[in-house]
């Protein structure tokens, strides 16, 4: 397998994750875009594993999976709390920090 292809796939995924992160107004979508970004990093790591002919980056992939899982749990629970308190997940309606 050509390793460059994987890197390009990772790059495309990351860019799309960032664009979703910046453009979407729904907090759930933003959180999902972060997951996508993390997965793009995973793909990049797999690529490096091929390049270096070693398993070390692969191991990092599993650590990253664990972190992503934790992060998703915490993120989702925060989202639920926000939904309860603000009755919405639209970021432009949650602006309590701005001075009144």
């Amino acid at each position: 397998m050509n390793s460059d292809n994987l890197l390009i796939l990772s790059f495309i995924l990351f860019i799309s994750a960032i664009s979703i992160f910046l453009t979407h107004k729904n907090l759930l979508m933003i959180l999902m875009s972060l997951e996508l970004g993390l997965n793009s990093a995973n793909i990049a790591l797999i690529n490096f594993s091929f390049i270096k002919q070693s398993l070390e980056p692969m191991v990092w992939v599993f650590i990253l999976f664990a972190i992503a899982a934790c992060e998703a749990v915490i993120g989702l629970s925060i989202l639920i709390m926000i939904l309860r308190n603000f009755k919405t997940l639209k970021v432009d309606e949650i602006k309590d920090l701005k001075e009144i």
């Binding site: 960032i18 992160f21 910046l22 107004k25 907090l27 933003i30 970021v91 432009d92 949650i94 602006k95 309590d96 920090l97 701005k98 001075e99």
Partner: peptide, 17 residues
């Protein structure tokens, strides 16, 4: 500086990126 602290999450994200 207070102008930047407008509570808009997407603006923060933009600056961050």
């Amino acid at each position: 500086i207070r102008k930047s602290q407008n509570g808009n999450l997407q603006f923060y994200a933009f600056v961050f990126v």
